[in-house]
Amino acid sequence: MRGSVYALSVPSFWLAMMLILMGAVLTGCFPPGGRGATVSILGASWSLFTLDGLRHLVLPALALALPNIALIARLTRSGTIEVESLDFIRFCRAKGLSGRRILLSHTLPNISVPIVTIIGLQFGGTLAFAVVVETIFAWPGVGKLLIDSVQLLDRPVIMATLTFVAAAFVTLNALIDLFQALLDPRIGLSN
């Protein structure tokens, strides 16, 4: 669990630079930045569908995913410890249910609502940190577009980018609320 505390504590820009140092400079396994080879599909250039593009995607994806994975792991661990000490779990053990069945049928449904909430909120945080990570890795994305627009004082592009990010965040939160109602019947959709 020390690794998750470390991953949570490290700023995204420093993590991105350390991934470049370890993955690109010292080992040479991955390219340090850029987009890689692209292929044209429906008039748009996609690097996701080429092997070189996937190699270029590994380090930025790790820089964005590691802190989120650490937070979810810590939340899952603390929720599991809390639920495992409750009476109904002890009753399930006394009944002779297997540990796997207790975990899948009783523990996970009880800790799923806060985990789903944090996952939804982390998507918003990922959009915010993508600005920094895309700039460090020279990845042509929405974050880099925003930084370039701020430097050029291109107000319409800044407003459009921020509107897109806000709409994505609101949509994700609405979907998370609907998903929570499916996970926990006590949460009503009528409110």
Rank of each mutant, 00 (worst) to 15 (best):
L8Y: 00
P60N: 03
R93D: 12
R90W: 11
L178M: 14
M17I: 12
A160K: 00
R101G: 07
Q180M: 14
L42I: 12
A138Y: 11
L152E: 15
V113C: 06
G36W: 01
L175G: 10
D87C: 00
K144F: 12
A44K: 14
T126M: 14
L162N: 11
V58M: 09
I136E: 00
V25A: 01
L26R: 08
M18E: 04
L189E: 15
V150C: 08
L172D: 04
N173S: 10
P156F: 02
L183Q: 01
E84M: 15
L51I: 13
R93L: 13
A24C: 04
R100H: 12
R90V: 02
C29P: 00
V25C: 01
I41Q: 05
V142S: 11
K144Q: 15
V116H: 06
W14L: 15
S85E: 13
G188Q: 12
I176Q: 05
G99H: 12
A16E: 02
A70S: 08
L19D: 04
L175V: 14
A138R: 13
S9N: 07
E82V: 03
S78F: 07
S45M: 09
E134A: 04
A174D: 07
R74Q: 12
I81N: 05
R90A: 09
N191F: 14
L162R: 08
V10Y: 10
F179V: 10
A73Y: 14
L48V: 14
K95E: 15
L153V: 15
Q151E: 09
P156L: 05
G28I: 03
A61F: 11
R2W: 10
L127H: 04
S9T: 08
A128F: 03
N110R: 00
L108K: 08
M22K: 04
G79I: 02
V25Q: 07
L182W: 14
S112Y: 08
R101W: 14
L57H: 07
Y6R: 14
I81Q: 09
L104D: 10
P31R: 07
A128Q: 12
L178C: 10
T163E: 07
V25M: 05
G53L: 13
L54Q: 13
L75P: 09
N110W: 01
L86K: 15
S40E: 14
L59T: 03
G143E: 02
C92T: 08
